[in-house]
Amino acid sequence: MNENLQKILDEAKTRIAAAESLEDLNDIRVQMLGKKGRITDVMKSMRELPPEERPAFGQMVNGLRQMVEETMETRKRLLAAKVREAKLAAETIDVTLPAKAAGIGHSHPNTIALDEVERIFVGMGYEVVEGPEVEKDYYNFEALNIPANHPAKDEQDTFYINPDVVLRTQTSSVQVRVMEKGQLPIRMISPGRVYRSDEVDATHSPCFHQIEGLVIDKNVTFADLKGTLALFARQLFGEDTRVKFRPHHFPFTEPSAEMDVSCFKCHGTGCRFCKGSGWIEILGCGMVHPHVLEMRGIDPEEYTGFAFGVGLERISLLKYEIDDMRLLYENDARFLKQF
């Protein structure tokens, strides 16, 4: 490279290195490489050379141009990064400022509890079945082994529409409707509203929810009932939950039981929550009474089954430690948004 070209290169490098902004750099590019730039001028001056020198000279100028361009590119990247950095620094936000709420609504605690229960039983192959709330007396009582004049039918408990139609007092009525279809085996749960003539207070509501469960198959045993409900309790209340079955009486099951779960607050040592007993009463259950099967034309010698009924509010009140049942039907937004 001749001296002149070397001088241009040195000068360019010096100026490029000194450039502090992309604008400066652009000015240098125009002055060096632009139409009237120094290097362009040198290239133009090639015409004045003898033809045999031109190729070598041209190569040299091109080499110079390339070197200047590369130097410029390197500097440009550096300056661009600086600019980006400064921009980012200027854009810093206070991430601790409050969020802009998405304002998503909340499910009712009863629904959350029911979804849990449904998930557990659907996982075990149970179908979720519904039935009418305004129900024939027959399905609610007689077909469940509660004949006319049984104390459970007493008007003080049951809302009557007319002598033959009631507001169902238990979702067990759906058992009968499912058995009536005659398809065996049966594995179902039936959630829904039930009605009892109880005045509204902290622990009573004339309208509440129950989940009925029914399994009918060959060789279903009381041990199966225990195993199923123990699994249910562990899934719902936690793996370390223990269950206790106590004899009880329901007209449509025999043998019958009530199931307690170990208190999930104190884990069985006794606390205010479980009234010191370490146990919480959670549901009623039993083997389907043979007469109930017979009434639906199912031979109790061939088929057996178990049934259980659990109060949904009982679960949601316990699980979420809600101390007043009225809160569930008041729908105060401050209450609902806690779920």
């Binding site: 075990m124 192959g125 149970y126 179908e127 979720v128 060959k218 279903v220 199966d224 225990k226 699994l231």
Partner: peptide, 20 residues
């Protein structure tokens, strides 16, 4: 003793289950 009765799960024909 209800507590001494074993705990098992029903076996028998599988059912699909699910929501309507």
């Amino acid at each position: 003793g209800y507590d001494k009765i074993p705990t098992t799960l029903p076996h028998g024909e599988a059912t699909a289950g699910g929501l309507s």
